[in-house]
Amino acid sequence: MPEGSASLQLAVGDRVVYPNQGVCRVSAIDVKEVAGQKLTFVTMRREEDGAVVMVPEGKVLAIGVRKVASAE
């Protein structure tokens, strides 16, 4: 991610809310080559049905992904 860009610090195992998809758990953060460029992807699995969603790390905030609020 370019320096100075806002990002959401995620780790494998974090629970997040993905708008219009529901609650997901981060299952992987991997670098993949797409069209000759190396990009970091956040892979999330929906808790409702296990569907897998992959989002480029740089788009996580723009999409509206946020961490699940704690009970505290």
Rank of each mutant, 00 (worst) to 15 (best):
T40H: 05
E3K: 08
L61C: 07
G13Y: 00
V52T: 09
P56Y: 08
D14N: 02
C24D: 00
F41C: 02
V60P: 02
G64Y: 07
R25A: 05
L39C: 01
V55Q: 04
N20Y: 07
K59F: 14
E47R: 01
Y18L: 14
V60R: 04
P19C: 00
G22H: 04
V60G: 06
V60Q: 04
L8M: 11
V53E: 03
S27E: 15
V17R: 06
V23T: 07
D49C: 02
V52S: 12
M1I: 12
A69I: 12
M54E: 11
Q37M: 10
P19T: 04
R15I: 14
I63E: 14
M44N: 00
Y18E: 02
V31W: 06
L10A: 01
N20F: 08
E72F: 08
M54L: 08
K38F: 12
G50W: 05
Q21F: 15
L10Q: 00
P56K: 06
N20C: 01
V52R: 05
A6F: 10
E3N: 12
I63P: 09
G36Q: 02
V34C: 01
E3L: 11
L10C: 00
Q21R: 09
A71T: 11
E72Q: 10
V26M: 00
A69Q: 11
V17C: 00
C24S: 02
V23R: 04
A71S: 12
N20G: 15
P56E: 15
D49K: 01
N20P: 12
A6T: 11
Q9C: 02
E72R: 09
A69R: 09
S70M: 10
I63W: 05
Q37W: 04
R15H: 06
S5C: 04
D30C: 06
A62Q: 14
G58D: 15
D49P: 01
A35V: 04
K38N: 07
T40C: 01
P19K: 06
F41I: 14
R66N: 08
R46V: 04
A35R: 09
I63T: 09
V42G: 00
S7K: 13
G58T: 14
G64W: 06
G64M: 11
R66F: 07
A11M: 12
E72L: 10
K38P: 05
V23G: 02
M1G: 13
A69K: 11
S70L: 11
A6E: 11
V60Y: 10
G36T: 02
G64P: 05
V53N: 03
V34R: 04
R66T: 14
Y18D: 03
G64R: 05
A11P: 01
Q21H: 15
V26Q: 01
V34D: 04
P56N: 07
T40F: 07
L39N: 04
M54Y: 10
G4R: 09
V34S: 05
K38E: 07
L39V: 15
V16C: 00
V52M: 11
F41R: 02
D14R: 00
A6P: 13
E57C: 08
G4A: 13
I63V: 13
V34K: 04
V52K: 06
A11E: 10
S7I: 13
G22A: 04
V55D: 03
K67G: 05
R15L: 15
M1V: 13
G50A: 03
L39H: 15
E48C: 06
E47Y: 04
A11W: 05
E57T: 07
A62L: 10
C24N: 00
A51E: 09
S70G: 12
V42I: 15
V52N: 04
G50T: 02
A6K: 13
G50F: 03
E3P: 11
G22W: 04
R66C: 08
E48D: 09
A28I: 04
T43A: 04
V52C: 03
V53T: 05
F41M: 14
C24Y: 15
V17M: 13
R15W: 15
K38D: 04
V65C: 06
P2C: 03
A11I: 09
D49A: 02
T43D: 02
T43W: 09
V68N: 05
C24R: 00
R45N: 08
V55F: 08
R25D: 02
E33T: 10
V65N: 03
G58E: 15
A6S: 12
G50H: 04
A62F: 06
S5T: 13
V17K: 04
R46H: 06
K67I: 15
A35M: 11
F41T: 06
E33K: 06
M54N: 05
V60K: 03
C24Q: 00
I29M: 03
E47D: 05
M1P: 13
Q37Y: 06
L61M: 10
R25Q: 09
G4H: 11
P19A: 09
K59H: 14
A51H: 09
V55A: 07
P2M: 10
V31T: 10
Q37V: 13
G50K: 02
G4C: 05
G36V: 01
L61P: 07
G4I: 12
E72D: 13
M44V: 04
E72C: 08
Q9F: 09
V42R: 00
Y18M: 14
V31Q: 08
E33H: 08
G50C: 02
D14T: 03
K59N: 13
V17A: 06
Q37T: 10
V23A: 05
A11L: 08
D49M: 02
D49G: 04
A62T: 07
E72W: 07
S27F: 13
S7T: 13
G4N: 13
K32M: 14
K59G: 09
L61Y: 08
K38A: 06
G50E: 03
R15N: 03
V60W: 14
K38T: 08
P19W: 06
V42W: 02
V34Q: 05
E48I: 13
A71G: 10
G64C: 09
C24A: 03
K67P: 07
D14K: 01
P19D: 07
Y18Q: 02
S5H: 12
E33G: 03
P19L: 08
I29W: 01
A35P: 02
R45A: 08
V12G: 00
V16K: 01
V26A: 00
L61T: 14
T40E: 02
S5R: 10
E48Y: 12
Q21M: 15
L39G: 05
A71W: 08
F41H: 02
R15C: 00
R45Y: 14
Q21V: 15
E48K: 11
Y18C: 09
G4S: 13
G58W: 15
V34F: 08
Y18R: 02
T40Y: 07
G22V: 05
P19M: 07
L10R: 00
P2T: 11
S27P: 00
V31L: 06
V52Q: 07
R66E: 11
V23Y: 14
A6V: 12
K59S: 12
K32C: 04
Q21A: 09
G13T: 01
F41Y: 10
R66D: 07
V12L: 05
D49F: 02
N20Q: 09
S7D: 10
M54K: 06
R15T: 09
V26N: 00
G13A: 01
V68A: 07
V53F: 15
N20V: 05
E47I: 07
V55G: 03
D14L: 04
V42M: 02
V65K: 04
E57P: 07
A69F: 05
M44Y: 03
S5Q: 12
L61V: 15
E33Y: 12
R25H: 04
T43F: 08
V42P: 00
R45V: 15
E72H: 10
K67M: 12
A28Q: 07
V31K: 05
E3M: 10
K32W: 14
K32D: 03
L61Q: 14
V16H: 01
V31N: 04
A62S: 09
R46Q: 03
E48G: 08
L61A: 14
